[in-house]
């Protein structure tokens, strides 16, 4: 299952990765090989099989609507790359 250069670029855009040309080449061929290998799952006819999204059969886990302390401003911005007043600042969106 070969993945085209355009598909690599499309996926990189979706994932917000600015790949270099070299990366596009290398990742493209590696992805093709990996997709070939994982595409094996298609060999099984599983039309009647239920998917397993979770190893445990749990349901209805929730918490009461009781508040817990939020962070202090120092903690909120402790790791922030940029800040303006009490906002996180980013380039124009």
């Amino acid at each position: 299952m070969a993945i085209t250069r355009d598909e690599v670029l499309h996926v990189a855009r979706l994932a917000r990765l600015a790949l270099t040309d070299e990366e596009v080449e290398r990742l493209g061929s590696q992805l093709s090989a990996i997709l070939e290998a994982v595409g094996k799952v298609a060999e099984l006819d599983l039309a009647d099989v239920e998917p397993t999204s979770h190893p445990l059969d749990l349901a209805n886990v929730s918490a009461d609507d009781e508040s817990r302390p939020s962070l202090s401003a120092d903690e909120v911005f402790a790791n922030a790359p940029d800040r303006e007043d009490d906002f996180f600042r980013v380039p124009p969106a």
Partner: peptide, 16 residues
């Protein structure tokens, strides 16, 4: 999460 909801609170003060 259990951060309190308060409209008009200080920016980012209701975060965890």
């Amino acid at each position: 999460c259990r951060c309190e909801l308060e409209y008009g609170a200080e920016e980012n003060s209701r975060t965890c």
